[in-house]
Design a protein around this nucleic acid. Structure first.
Ligand code: FES
Ligand code: FES
Lengths: 147, 147
DNA sequence: CTATTTAAGACTATTATAGTCCTGTATTAG
DNA sequence: CTAATACAGGACTATAATAGTCTTAAATAG
């Protein structure tokens, strides 16, 4: 079972791309090409971030997308939640027809704690961190350390 | 996005049922009825636990299923993994065509840590805990404390 | 022997995700 | 002003995952 969906993965890659070339405007076509993502699909994805104010869009010739915030300000949590909404372990357990049945169910507490753990973990990672790491590993690759 | 699937939820309910009536043999039909789960579907589910040695099956008339282990020995983690396999955040990030591209990717470490957190949390909850809690809450209900 | 109940696999239905396409509108180079 | 460029938004299709059903066989209690 996979928690992070494909489009979320695409989104992260695209945002890392934007964060790496801060201030520059990149078209969806350009990003898609460099990240192996279907263009039209990527546009759809980026639109969500535009609405959230995380990405700026620029129409017309020479237009495209750019990061609206500092890379250090955008957390993985924001990105993931923009794509797939709040992560939920399960709406209900041990209740036959929805959670309200057992308001004091112990699993509910456990699910919530797990959700919080994941969320706070993701909230601690920013695009800047990812960009830095990408630079790190490509430094290795340049020295001929492939695989 | 939901991490726990429907059939896993059914499985937990069914196992709690079995754990509550320890030693007794309950037919799939009986369990399904008491837990609002499609019978045939539940059979499929229980078969998985039989194979894992968590549940014993008894064919023929008056047959059914019973818990093969002590309720305190069966963890939520086992149950969830029996149904949906190991929980994975995502097989890969920031690599275009699979994880091997960046063996030292930072997200990989983060995903692993999150997976471990969830797993250890689930490993700390047993069927016994759930049965106890169900008894707790029904005690409240009996006193007329509905909602 | 017969009614009951699980085992196993094939099959279908439903829903979620992924991906495409088309039409419109803003922007800007020329 | 015009034409090319590139995003906006919605409708649409395809694919895959999940959920659920059905059918046949094998075991067992009475
Ligand atoms: S009964 Fe709804 S979360 Fe436990
Ligand atoms: S590149 Fe595969 S997990 Fe990061």
């Amino acid at each position: 079972m996979e928690v992070i969906r494909r489009n979320t993965e695409y989104a992260i890659r695209a945002l890392v791309h934007l964060a790496a070339n801060r201030e520059a405007v990149a078209s969806a076509w350009e990003i898609a090409g460099s990240q192996d993502v279907p263009v039209e699909f990527l546009q759809k994805i980026l639109q969500k971030f535009v609405k959230r104010g995380i990405v700026d869009s620029h129409r017309g010739a020479q237009g495209g997308f750019s990061l609206a915030k500092e890379p250090g300000e955008v957390t993985l949590l924001e990105v993931v939640e923009t794509m797939q909404g709040k992560l939920a372990m399960n709406r209900c357990f041990l209740g036959r027809d929805g959670c309200p049945r057992s308001p004091n169910c112990p699993l509910k507490q456990n699910w919530l704690r797990m959700e919080e753990q994941i969320a706070s973990h993701m909230a601690g990672i920013t695009l800047q961190d990812l960009v830095d790491q990408v630079r790190e590993s490509s430094r290795f690759e340049v020295r001929g350390e492939r695989q």
